[in-house]
Amino acid sequence: MYAVILTVVAAMLSGGLAGSDPPPHGDYAAMARYVVHNNDWGSLASISTHQPMKGKPFTNVFSVSDGPVENGTGVPYFFFSPLDVTVQDLMVNPNASFSMSEIESGYCTSMKWDAEDPRCAKIILSGKIVTVPQDEADFAKNALFSRHPIMADWIKMESHKFYFTKMEIEDVFVLDFFGGGNIVSPEDYFNVKP
């Protein structure tokens, strides 16, 4: 058991869930897919509908999955409850940005890079948050529950009315080196074979 735990931790520290090192600098679409697939959480920004922040950007941390470890799709899936203030914001205005950092994989730490170091990749996805269609619900459930097993207990809390959502990506911003960020088209992002 101890050996299994050490192996999992070592894999995470060496390059994240997928067990591989990040793509080279300059391959922005591949870097975006790498970070999105290797992160279990990020910061979701909405436009607040609640006082005293009404009309201002508001961020909140959410668990995420783009698919099971062996089947990343690039699509961020979420498990939302309408009781959450960010979810309430998104019901009024579905436009959102979702930020993730390579710091979670352990790679940046192994390189002695701070989370703010430009070489520690940061990805910002922008688009609309929509309810997952019924024919995609089983995939979303497997994507999220395989990475976040505790969610299987959340679904039992009927009063919270959890449901599956995803981001329809419109823009991808990547910062993975000095000199400023880069825009990746959704088409290039989804064409990457992880």
Rank of each mutant, 00 (worst) to 15 (best):
P133L: 13
V85S: 05
K161L: 14
T73D: 04
G26H: 07
T165M: 14
D84P: 00
D117T: 05
P194R: 10
D171L: 15
A121L: 10
D89G: 04
S110W: 03
M31D: 02
A96H: 01
G16I: 01
M53W: 15
D176G: 08
D138Q: 14
I5W: 00
M31S: 05
M53Y: 15
F98I: 04
D188V: 10
L175W: 12
P149H: 12
M157Y: 14
C108K: 04
S105G: 01
V130Q: 15
Y77R: 01
A143G: 02
K156N: 07
D114A: 13
D138R: 11
A32G: 12
H160G: 02
V64Q: 03
N182C: 10
A121Q: 05
G127L: 11
R147E: 06
F98A: 03
D153T: 15
A115G: 09
S63F: 12
T165W: 11
N39I: 07
V87H: 01
T7V: 01
G181V: 03
G55L: 10
A3H: 12
G67E: 00
L90C: 03
I124F: 09
S99E: 12
V184Q: 05
Y28C: 06
T59N: 13
S20R: 04
Y189N: 06
Q88C: 04
Q88P: 01
S99H: 06
K54T: 09
A152S: 13
H160Y: 13
P149E: 13
P82F: 05
I123P: 00
D153H: 14
F58R: 11
V9R: 01
R33W: 09
N39Q: 10
A152E: 15
A18Y: 00
I124V: 14
G55E: 10
S20E: 06
S110G: 07
Y28A: 11
I169M: 10
I103A: 14
N71L: 08
V75Y: 02
V4E: 08
K161T: 13
F178A: 05
M151C: 09
R119T: 04
K156L: 12
M31F: 08
H25Q: 13
D89R: 07
A29H: 08
G106Y: 07
V69Y: 01
M1G: 06
E104P: 01
P22S: 04
T49P: 01
D153M: 15
D66E: 05
N71A: 10
D21G: 11
A3C: 06
F80W: 03
Y2W: 14
E168A: 10
G72Y: 02
C120V: 07
